[in-house]
Simulated assay, not measured.
Amino acid sequence: MSGHVVLGRQPMAVSGCALPAGKRRRGAGAAGKRSPRPGGARGPGAGARRGPHGGAAAAAAAAAAAAGLGRGLRRRAGRRLGGGRAAGGGAVHRGAGRRLPHLLRLPAAVFQALCAKDKLLAAFGDHLVRLSTANTYSYRKVDVPFQEYVEHLLKPQDPATLGSDTLYFFGDNNFTEWGPLFQKYVPPPFHIPGTRGAYSFGIAGSGSGVPFHWHGPGYSEVIFGRKRWFLYPPDKTPHFHPNETTLAWLHHTYPTLLPGERPLECTIHPGEVLYFPDRWWHATLNLDTSVFISTFLG
């Protein structure tokens, strides 16, 4: 890595269909993350932050905002899934829009500059970060200095390694220490009235990611690199093993799926944001060494 955190990135040859559209961002947000629970459900996972959030009302409200900003995801066959007009007032209002994923284009040049490798190491190099296993339930947690993670552990995913044996930096952020960085981040300009967004910041190597899981609604933005998403609606449980990495699933299971069994897919690039609705199954795959941040609603 040199200059910024995508140094030495190793891109993967996976075709994508990013379909950005939308408006410029406004507003600000707060902090937090999610991690999975046994039985398929996931709750918030920033340290002790656990328990459900989102719900049907939150999902409908968040979808209303996202529907106005994105043209929607497409299936590999090209079917468009979204559209509409933006809800007004800077808040997410229930009633307009659909409960579907959407892509937004919200450039974040200032925050991106702060996420350069030298800036992050200067500010947080000696701070401990909490790594989680990259499997559906993220049971295991390990604390290491941020500089050690960046210089020694930030590597491409080994295809033979299980997700339960892969350590991944995403969320569980110490918001007292990372607060100065998060204060510079401008999230998507919609929120659920009476709530604050919860941030989850991460850096991971190419081929890494989290296998299928679900939780409440929110936004995911790529700062550096590319991240591929695979999504299924709540009533369509995907075929996967919770300890298998997304990379292994892509190689072993994905090719066997019939056209009607395949997920919705997209690849998001720097300055693009994906809105994920409440309780939608999703798996992620970093195509490069990537820096990313999610805003969980509710």
Rank of each mutant, 00 (worst) to 15 (best):
V5C: 04
C17N: 11
P20C: 10
R37V: 12
P38Q: 00
G39M: 07
G39C: 07
G47H: 11
G51R: 13
A57M: 07
A59K: 00
A60H: 08
A64P: 03
R75M: 09
A77T: 13
R85L: 04
A96W: 08
L100R: 13
H102N: 15
L103Y: 09
A108N: 01
A109N: 00
A113I: 01
C115F: 00
C115R: 05
K119R: 15
A122G: 12
G125T: 11
V129K: 05
T133K: 12
S138T: 08
V142E: 12
P145V: 13
F146D: 10
E148T: 14
V150W: 01
D158Y: 06
T161W: 04
G163F: 09
Y168V: 14
F169M: 13
D172W: 00
F182P: 06
K184M: 06
I192T: 05
S200Y: 07
F201W: 03
P211L: 02
G218K: 06
S220V: 15
I223A: 05
F224Q: 08
L231D: 03
P233L: 09
P238Q: 02
H239Q: 09
A248E: 07
W249K: 08
H252I: 09
L257D: 05
L257M: 12
L258Y: 07
L258F: 06
E265W: 01
W280G: 00
H282F: 13
A283Y: 00
T295L: 10
T295M: 11
T295W: 13
